[in-house]
């Protein structure tokens, strides 16, 4: 049964290694807004992919469709590697806001995904503390969110996403509300964790500089209707550090991605 499903799955998909794919996905909201039109995108396992575009290009909508929070109006979302034995694709979502429960401690917030699976506090303790260690907040387990800075709250949010040991991490402009110093720090920490655990990251951003620094593939999107206009590989090697941030290679990539983004926005104006 399992083997059969596996064969079926591998026959159905195009290129091997896609962990999730959108096939001709369109999304129209009830007010008539076309958020996405005929979007096709295959995301390979282990990729750090950024969805980059102006506001209103549907990048967040695409992320919500991948997460399953909302369905496409037409087209398909597929998880080719999903098998009958493992029906749930393990993914986590990080929102733009930290989205913490103010009435729960840092520990309680990170425990939440496990708690919803019925794992008791004592059974979850080690896993939760491990996730907090990863983001450097183990000593703040008993603090309340209000006692933390914006950057620390976002770390808690990331720890909560990591506590379920996901294969896919969806991030919706997670650092947009943070100051630049904190953002750079969290960029580095995120990259280090990504290299260590090898998740697939789908990262929504409107920052050219952030997307080039983090990702090995940037999908540039345009608005009205939301669509993909460019698919750019960033082939700079990891680990990327502050040295990369100031290199000419980085500047070159930023320039070409910027041009792609602007041509998308110019094309928009003629519509």
């Amino acid at each position: 049964m399992i083997a059969k499903t596996l064969v079926k799955a591998s026959q159905d998909v195009g290129p091997q290694g896609d962990i999730v794919s959108l096939e001709g996905v369109s999304k129209t909201f009830s007010n008539g807004t076309v958020a996405l039109k005929d979007l096709s995108l295959g995301i390979r396992a282990g990729e750090f992919l950024s969805l980059l575009g102006p506001s209103g290009c549907g990048k967040s909508t695409a992320l919500r469709i991948i997460s399953g929070l909302t369905g496409p109006t037409s087209g398909r979302l597929r998880w080719p590697q999903e098998t009958a034995s493992q029906p749930e694709h393990e993914l986590s979502f990080v929102f733009q806001e930290p989205t913490l429960m103010p009435w729960a401690t840092v520990f309680g917030n990170v425990w939440l995904p496990l708690r919803l699976k019925g794992i008791s506090k004592s059974a979850a303790r080690d896993t939760v503390m491990e996730a907090l260690e990863m983001v450097g907040l183990a000593s703040f387990a008993q603090s309340y969110p209000r006692e933390l800075s914006g950057g620390m709250k976002m770390r808690v949010s990331i720890a909560r996403a990591l506590v379920t040991k996901p294969k896919v991490l969806l991030m919706d402009e997670p650092f947009a509300a943070l100051d630049e110093i904190t953002r750079f720090k969290l960029n580095n920490d995120l990259l280090a964790l990504w290299q260590r655990f090898g998740w697939t990251v789908i990262f929504v951003t409107h920052s050219v500089f952030e997307s080039v620094y983090l990702s090995n593939r940037i999908v540039v999107m345009a608005a009205r209707p939301g669509r993909i206009v460019n698919d750019i590989a960033i082939d700079a090697p990891y680990p990327r550090t502050e040295a990369f941030r100031t290199s000419t290679l980085y500047a070159d990539h930023c320039r070409s991605v910027s041009q792609a983004l602007h041509s998308a926005m110019d094309a928009n104006d003629h519509l």
Partner: peptide
Amino acid sequence: LRSLFALY
């Protein structure tokens, strides 16, 4: 947070 609960 509601989305998060739905997701999990």
